[in-house]
Design a protein around this nucleic acid. Structure first.
Lengths: 195, 195, 195, 195
DNA sequence: TATGAATGAGCCTTCATTCAT
DNA sequence: GATGAATGAAGGCTCATTCAT
């Protein structure tokens, strides 16, 4: 009988509220109001305020990784896959501005998240990038002596910073505009043909 | 007459406390205890708890940028300057683990910081990177068609992610080990000689 | 059409739940679960949580007093009646451990109960004891100068404390074992033959 | 620097507040208001609301037992000691009506108290009574075959019920009036000279 | 009648900040 | 200046009660 759509409504409301005020400055009652329900109702679906944030992050990351994996799988080779990944990373955030705000700014807080419950989902994304890089090294599209772990973090960090700057700059331009440049620089950086 | 060393004692204590528990989970009284003073004394030097964090960040960033600027200025060309910058970025964090923890993990929270009082210091660091890139483009060491703003963010993001991963991984290896790889990949990525 | 057995089911469930957790630490939903019904259903039969406790107490006390009255009436004289009463008091509690727990421990809370709705039933029990004492005084089995009100409270208090100690001691011995000693001491205390 | 009188002020205020509304119906802020301090101040001296009640009970019981022990020690023989004890029990309550209210009515709630933190203090009082009874049995003032444990509980229960009735009856008469009758009945009940 | 999801008032506790000493 | 006891606003969470189904 419990409404199966409620948790999602609550999470969606939480994204909007956290995006506006930040996690610590948002009241549970704010989320409830945004979701159009009573504050107590939230506790039928989530044990604590923390759990909302953790669930939010886990779910979005899991969705995101699954989606990225599918999209990437459709591409022919490592280079195409990386291009697809970069484009997707940017376009997804661009199309979900509230989520972008929360993910890029609010979710960075503290041990709780990266170190805690969501570590698994984050590392899944890293693994996806990593596996594409290794595929590229196996096929010769990427230099053999590139340390894949380092390159993975570099690419993620580069995309992440572009996204954060875009969010902090109040999204006053198109994030996807930068996708081509990021891909070009990174791919040339790891290509076998550089000096 | 206010003790001119107190603010620095307080900030140093704050770094250690924030590094352990995070900003929101640290009490003003925790900082006071760590600094060996009474809680009320902190308010002789800082108006609010927020101000401690903001000041902390501003000061450390300002120091850092000044230091980086000096070091970079001593190098001959843009490529050497970038290599120096990358090495410095990593070695500084490696030598200040508590500061690293705070900067990489705790300071990421919320609008307050990146968007707020510390925006100026952050952008000074970006400007430093940016100016080196432009110098490289002018001298021909860097491709003319590299969008410098994007490349700046990429390099910062790459270094930042390496640092964050290292902190989250409990600093179980040497961060500076990756400096060479980061420099190589980035420099090749923006070099004029790639395909 | 309301199920005429439900209120009793609810009260019985309430006894078990209150015995385990106490009144204030029991949820209405705990009682419902114990009774195998939904929480809302309870409100078809009781207006408030309080009413459950009050009804519980009233009913049990009324049953108990009626039973005691019948049993006592079957005895020949005041002394035999008092012996019967004491034995009955202890054996009833011994045979209803959950009820004993609730009556001896939980029902003692606050003005609400002794002073409130259940005052009438409690005083009926006191009246029963009192009337037997007066019968004894009339027949000469009990000293004429015994203040009957005081003696009534003493006997009730004595039995009650024995019962409470037994409950608090987790019922690790037989409460009825003490009946004889209680009767002997009390009866000698009020007998005309003492010094 | 912490005010050493505050805890006592808080406990005294708590006695008055609990006496009026009962424990569960009293707000921590009520106690604070009654004590003339801010609610938060209470938490400088007590960890939780519960701790106030437990401390209250422990302290008052400990005081009471110590006092009773001293008074009883001043008497010559067991019978005189029991008379003194009974008189003292009643007069102490009569002189502290708010405390009487709390002790007789509010502190009876639930496992928490009798079974919990205050069990030790309660049993000290039982031990005092018990030791006097044994002294009386040794000296021949009390029957040898009286089960001392049972008689202890009876006497305590008798006094306790007299006190409770007096409190519930809004203290409309003098509790000490009954002391003599209680002593007489109990002492005759355990005397060697009864039938 | 029975259900149990939804409600929202209520309260304990925390902690940044103040201020008398 | 330094202290730390005192303040009191704020908010997460609980749970008795209601009501749509």
């Amino acid at each position: 009988m419990r409404d199966p759509a409620k948790p999602q409504q609550i999470l969606d409301a939480a994204i909007r509220v956290f995006a506006r005020h930040g996690y610590y400055n948002s009241r549970v009652s704010d989320i409830a109001r945004e979701a159009g329900i009573a504050a107590g109702t939230i506790y039928l679906y989530f044990k604590t305020k923390d759990e909302i944030l953790v669930t939010l992050f886990r779910e979005k990351m899991a969705e995101w990784v699954a989606h990225a994996r599918r999209e990437v799988a459709g591409e022919q080779d490592a280079v195409a896959k990386l291009r697809r990944l970069i484009t997707l990373h940017f376009s997804t955030l661009e199309q979900n501005p509230d989520l972008a705000e929360v993910v890029q700014v609010e979710l960075r807080q503290g041990q709780k998240f990266f170190r805690g419950a969501s570590a698994h989902e984050v590392s899944a994304y890293f693994e996806l990038i990593h596996s594409v890089l290794e595929e590229g090294m196996a096929s010769g599209q990427i230099r053999h002596d590139v340390p894949a772990r380092v390159a993975t973090k570099m690419l993620f960090g580069a995309m992440d910073q572009l996204a954060t700057s875009w969010v902090l700059g109040k999204r006053g331009y198109r994030l996807t505009e930068s996708a081509e440049a990021v891909a070009t620089i990174f791919l040339q950086g790891v290509s076998p043909n550089g000096i």
